[in-house]
Simulated scan of single mutants.
Amino acid sequence: MIRHLVLFKLDEGVDRDDPRVVKGVEAFRALDGKIPEIRFWELGWNLSDRPIAYDFAINSGFEDADALRRYVEHPEHQAGVALWKEFATWVIADYEY
């Protein structure tokens, strides 16, 4: 299994209730069940107020590297990525577990 972690940092001046952010969260929330390669899917807003903390996280699981690749290339995923590019940056980590 592959764990795919994504941590998002909202751009300066962008808040969680910004309509673009709300739409971006909804787009990623809707991926569970739309993309068959997803084995595990959770996401949410960070609760920590530490200055090094990111704002939003996705924690997901995939059967193997090919399944992860198909997810990354999936049009629904790419549409969500396009939305988030307007207001955030992110880092990822993919590892076997």
Rank of each mutant, 00 (worst) to 15 (best):
Y95S: 04
I35P: 06
A30Y: 00
R3I: 11
V22Y: 00
K9Y: 12
N46C: 12
P19N: 10
Y95D: 03
D94E: 12
N46A: 11
I52G: 03
V72L: 08
R3E: 12
P19G: 09
H4Q: 07
G61R: 06
I35N: 04
K85C: 03
A30R: 11
D55M: 03
D66H: 05
V25N: 06
L10Y: 10
P51R: 04
R20A: 11
P19K: 06
K34I: 08
P51T: 11
G80R: 01
L68H: 12
I35E: 02
K34C: 03
P19S: 03
F40S: 12
K23D: 14
F28K: 01
R20L: 13
L5D: 07
A65Q: 13
E76V: 01
D15T: 15
R69T: 14
Y54A: 08
I52L: 10
I2Y: 11
A79N: 09
F56V: 08
A27V: 07
A67I: 08
E37P: 01
Y71E: 05
S48D: 13
E96D: 13
V22H: 00
D18C: 07
I2D: 03
A93L: 13
F62T: 12
A67Y: 04
N46W: 03
A93R: 05
R50M: 05
D66A: 15
F87D: 03
P75V: 08
L43I: 05
G44L: 10
I52K: 11
L47P: 00
E12M: 01
A88K: 02
K34H: 04
A79S: 13
E26M: 03
T89E: 14
L43G: 12
E73D: 15
A67R: 05
Y97M: 10
S60N: 08
L83C: 01
V72K: 12
L43W: 05
D32Q: 12
Y54R: 10
L31R: 01
V25A: 08
F8P: 00
E86S: 14
